[in-house]
Every structure is written in C-alpha cells, then in structure tokens.
C-alpha cells in the first residue's frame, strides 16, 4: 500500500473517531484564539441550535419523517427549566434532566397516536402542537410571564462551585454537551436502531417486512429528538437567563428544518454546518435585514432543487461520484 492509500484506509476505519478528536481540539482551542464575547456568544447559540438539529436530523434525516414543531419541545425545555428552578427552587442540573424526561414523555404521548400517520398529517400535527404551546406561553401569563418573557431570575448552571456565567465557561459546557451528543448520534446511527431507521426512511413497508417495528421505532426516535430539543432549551434559558415566547414560534421550527436541510438529511456532521450557517447568516447580513426572509427561502429552495438530499451530503456525493468515475476511466480524467 502506498502511504496515501494507507491514510485513506485508516480514515475509512477510524474516520468517526478522528473527526471527533479533531472536533474536540477545535472546541478546546477556540476560546484561546477568539475571546471576543460577542463571537463566543454567537458560537454558543450555534451550539444550542446544533443540539436541536442533531435530534431533528435523526427524525427527519434518518427516519424520513416530518416535524414542523420542534421549537415547541425547545420551548418546553426552556420554560420547564426556568419554572422548576425559579418557582420550585430545584437546582438547575436536576431541573434540566427532569424537564428533559418530562418532555420525552410529552413527545411519547404525542407520538404514539400521530406517528401512525404519515406525511402531511404528521406535518400538521407537529405544527398544531407548536402553535398550541406557543399560544399557551403567550396567554398563561401568571406562569410564563406572557409576551414580555419569563419573570424571575434564572440562575446559571454551575459545575461544582464554578458558575457557568461567562461566555468562555459556557462555551466549554455547551460545546462539551454537543461533543457528547454527536458521539452518541454517530454510534446510534451505526447501531441496529440506526440501521432500522434508515430502512424505514427508504421504504416503510420493506422495513416492517424485515421485522422492524416501524411504529415503535418512529415514536422512540421522535421522543429522543424531543429530549435533545429540551436539553437545548434548558441550556438556552440558563445561558441567556431570559426567555420569551417569540423565540419558540413555528417560524423557529421551520428554521430548524432549514438547518437540517442545509446540512444534509441524515448527516451528523452536516448538521453542524447547517446550524452554523443559518445561525450566523442574519449576523453576517446585518445590512440586508429586509432581505433576510428571501435569502433564507432561496437557500432552502435552491438546495432542495439541486441537492435534494441536503447541501453537505449532496456535495460529498458529487465528489465521491467524480472520484469513482476517475478511478474507473483514467483516460477520461
């Protein structure tokens, strides 16, 4: 084997662990290079979105289902954490996991009946759920604070006695979380559960013929993605210490879907790119505030038209095809 081939072989065997290691190095060194709180804050926001996109990607990308309501689970996580810590005086960490468990149960309750449905029914059910949650947040002002946002002081998370109250500390916390969840997703995707989900996305009937309990598989992954969104919500409320309903409208859900599509349906690393691009875009396009919607829409439409399986995945496929062609027909190259 030539050295190049050897490297390639090593990469195919250990690609995931290598990328994870590279990713870990990137996370650890970023605050050393960049200590501007504004950029770190932005990157923390990206991280929170990445967590949701990871979960949503499992559901949309791998299992091939539609959810237009993940902002609702995000909201439940954020408000759940805030209410448990402020009104009930529970410590942030337990509050976060209790909330996540509760949100998972809510997702189960919603998923069990609705996930028998497919396509547009599912889109509508999740969308409807999001609107219900949003309106309750807006109207039930005794508990949620209504349109002005949550009343009461949300305390920051702390590790040991160290409160995570600066951008840098929070950076390590939230990106560390992303790291763990990415590792989890990468393993999940290659486990039996992940494989059965991929089969389900390709052909539901074939999957059930092969012995996949399609209904149960969908509900489980739906609940898991809701738990991800809830964790992100809790992190959000403990990071920004202020929440209001506008963050959790259906347009937010659609933004999450755009992030998944940009990153690539069914690509764990793509989600990182998608969330990064869509979160930073409004900041980059500050001058073009008026065109923001149009640009978002155009990105979505163009990517779907030219790379229906998502941008990053689409580009990778293109590159792989080209390389395979080159290998087969060296004369043409």
């Amino acid at each position: 084997m030539s050295p190049a081939e050897r490297i390639r072989f090593f990469w195919t065997r250990h690609g995931n662990s290598c990328s994870l290691a590279l990713f870990l190095i990137a996370i650890l060194t970023l605050p050393l290079i960049q200590d501007n709180p504004y950029y770190l804050g932005l990157s923390n926001q990206v991280a929170i979105n990445v967590i949701i996109v990871l979960g949503l990607n499992l559901f949309v990308g791998y299992a091939g289902q539609i959810s237009l309501g993940h902002a609702a689970f995000f909201a439940l996580g954020a408000y759940g954490s805030a209410i448990l810590t402020v009104n009930f005086g529970i410590w942030p960490w337990p509050a976060m996991f209790v909330t996540a468990a509760l949100v998972g149960l809510v997702a189960l309750a919603i998923g069990l009946p609705t996930l028998r449905l497919s396509g547009h029914y599912l889109a509508m059910a999740t969308l409807g759920f999001n609107i219900v949650v949003y309106t309750v947040l807006l109207q039930w002002d005794k508990v949620t604070g209504g349109p002005d946002g949550f009343i009461g002081i949300i305390e920051p998370l702390s590790v040991g006695t160290l409160p995570m109250d600066t951008e840098i500390r929070f950076h390590y916390l939230v990106w560390g979380m992303v790291f763990v969840l990415i590792a989890l997703c990468l393993n999940l995707v290659r486990s039996g559960v992940g494989r059965s989900l991929a089969t389900l996305a390709a052909d539901e009937r074939a999957a059930s013929a092969l012995g996949v309990n399609t209904g149960l598989a969908k509900v489980k992954i739906f609940a898991l993605s809701a738990v991800f969104a809830s964790l992100a919500g809790s992190l959000y409320s403990h990071c920004f210490l202020f929440i209001n309903p506008d963050t959790f409208s259906i347009f937010r859900s659609i933004d999450f879907v755009i992030m998944v599509v940009v990153g690539g349906l069914g690509s764990v690393w793509g989600g990182l790119f998608g969330a990064g691009l869509i979160t930073c875009l409004p900041e980059l396009l500050d001058a073009f505030e008026a065109y923001k919607d149009i640009i978002h829409g155009l990105i979505l439409v163009l990517i779907l038209l030219f790379f229906p399986q998502g941008f990053v995945t689409g580009l990778m496929d293109l590159w792989r095809t080209r390389r395979a062609l080159k290998k087969q027909m060296p004369d043409n190259a």
């Binding site: 949309v60 396509g119 659609i254 149009i294 829409g297 439409v301 038209l305």
Partner: peptide, 20 residues
C-alpha cells in the same frame, strides 16, 4: 419530504417579497 419543504421555502420567499 423534499417537495413539502420546497413549498415551505417558496412560502418564506413570498413573505419576504411581500414584506419588501
């Protein structure tokens, strides 16, 4: 999935244009 997301994209564009 792709077609439904496409209509969502077009819908966002339409709203943007109308806002403009």
């Amino acid at each position: 999935l792709v077609l439904i997301f496409l209509t969502i994209g077009v819908s966002i564009i339409m709203r943007g244009v109308m806002k403009l």
